[in-house]
Amino acid sequence: MSATSIPDPAAPLRREWRRFTPAQRLSRWLVWLVVVAALAWAVRSIDIIPEFLADAPEQMADLLVRMWPPDLAHYYPAVHAALIETLHIATLGTILAFALAVPVALLAARNVCPLRPLNVLAQFILVASRSVNSLVWALIFVAIFGPGAAAGTFAIAFRSVGFVGKLLSEALEETAPGPAEALRAAGAPWGAVMLKGFWPQVQPAFWGVALFRWDINVRESAVLGLVGAGGIGVVLDDAINYFQWDRVATVLLAILAVVVVAEVVVTRIRARLI
C-alpha cells in the first residue's frame, strides 16, 4: 500500500473487490475473537502443572514400554470371565432397555398416543435418560444395588432407553398412516393395529437400532467396572492400581478385540438385514 505514494490518476476509477461485506467481516472477526478469547481463558486458568506437561512424552513412552510385551498368560481365566461378563451386561442391558423403551416410545409417538401431556412426559423421560452418562447411571445404580454386574446392567439399560426410545418413536411417527387406518376401519382391536399396522413398518428400524445400540453398549460396558459396576473394567482398574502394566495391556487388547469383533458382527448382520 505504501508503494503507491505517487497519486494515481486512475485510482478513483479502480474498482475494489472484497470477499465479504463489512458486516460479514465484522461478524467473522467477532466469532474468531470469541474463540481465541475462550481458548486464552482456558489456557491461562486451567490447572496444568508445567512440570507434568514437560514430562508428558517421557512418561507416556515409559508407560508403553512397561506395557510391552502384554502378558497373555493373564488372559485365562480372570480376564476371559470378565470379558464374558461384560458381553452379558451389554446384551442384557440392551434387552432390558428395549423392554423399557418400547412403551415409552409408544407414548412419545404422536400418531400412536394422541394425548399431548403423555407425549411430553415420555419425551421428558427420554431426554432425562440421554443426558445422564452411563458412568453416572452406573454410580447411581452402584449406590442402589451395591457393586456388581447388576448395577452395570441397569446403568446400560437406563442410559439406552433415551437413545432407543427416541429413534423408535421417530420411526413410529414416520410410518404411513394407511395400514393402521384400514385396520381400525375394519374394527381391529388396539393390539392388532399395533402388530399388523405399525410393527411391519418399524421392524427394520427396530432391528437396526437394536444392533447399533448393542455395539455402543459393548464399548460402554467395558468402562463401567471403573466405578464398580462389573465387567472387564473391574479387572482393568485392579491391574492399574497394582501397576501390573503387562496385565493392563492384555486387558486393553481384549477390549480392543471385542470392540472390533462387535463392530464387524453388527456390520455383517445389518448388511444381511437391509
Binding site: 479502480r14 474498482r15 475494489e16 473487490w17 472484497r18 470477499r19
Partner: peptide
C-alpha cells in the same frame, strides 16, 4: 486472505 494485487483485481474486472 484474498489480498490480491490491485492490478490483478483490475484485470479480473
Amino acid at each position: 486472505l484474498r489480498r490480491y494485487p490491485p492490478a490483478d483485481i483490475e484485470r479480473a474486472f
